[in-house]
């Protein structure tokens, strides 16, 4: 088995992949999310290996269909396989993606130890997406989707989502 820690993506396919967005965080493309582990073309057939963020993430079925539709629009047939191993990690999100996510109103994942500290309520490190203050607190470990936690800013009072670190 080849390692998929480094995704194997044909450069020629990137412009098409970039048109497919996460249905729940539409500012992020599937490449920003890091869920495409392989995309290669052979004799007009594109085979894609997609890994879910969370096991039950309902966005995955939609992303699979959107990928097929995006390639169909470019006259190519795509085949999407869902793979579980290696398991997705927030480390695979692109830096550009993290910045876009913050501008969209979702705080980007901190690194592992900082993440643990904020989710246990031991540290104030999550930056409010509205005013930038780190004077924020955890409201709920689970937010609007499984991948997020709900925070609230104690300076501007804005409630916001934080994308949890997954490693």
């Amino acid at each position: 088995m080849t390692s998929l820690l480094e995704p194997n993506i044909d450069i020629a396919l990137i412009p098409i992949l970039e048109t497919v967005a996460d249905p729940e965080i539409p500012v992020l493309t599937v490449l920003d999310l890091g869920v495409i582990r392989e995309a290669v073309e052979e004799n007009g057939l594109v085979s894609i290996k997609l890994t879910p963020t969370y096991s039950g993430c309902p966005a995955m079925d939609v992303i699979g269909d959107d990928l097929k539709a995006a390639f169909a629009k470019n006259g190519m047939k795509a085949e999407v396989t869902l793979i579980l191993s290696p398991a997705w990690s927030t480390d695979w999100m692109s830096e550009a993606g993290k910045r876009k996510m913050e501008a969209y109103g979702i705080a980007a994942p901190l690194e592992e130890s900082a993440d643990k500290a904020v989710l246990l309520g031991n540290a104030k490190l999550v930056k409010c997406t509205n005013c930038g203050s780190t004077n924020t607190h955890l409201v709920s470990q689970f937010g609007s989707t499984a991948c997020k936690a709900l925070f609230k800013c104690d300076d501007c009072q804005e409630p916001f989502d934080y994308f949890k670190c997954l490693k």
Binding site: Y54, S55, G56, Q141, F142, T145
Partner: peptide, 19 residues
């Protein structure tokens, strides 16, 4: 918050069951 948490846990479990 707890309502959302319980349904999120449900979603994880159903996702695992699917696999």
């Amino acid at each position: 918050e707890t309502d959302i948490a319980m349904t999120n846990i449900n979603l994880d479990l159903i996702g695992q069951a699917r696999s």
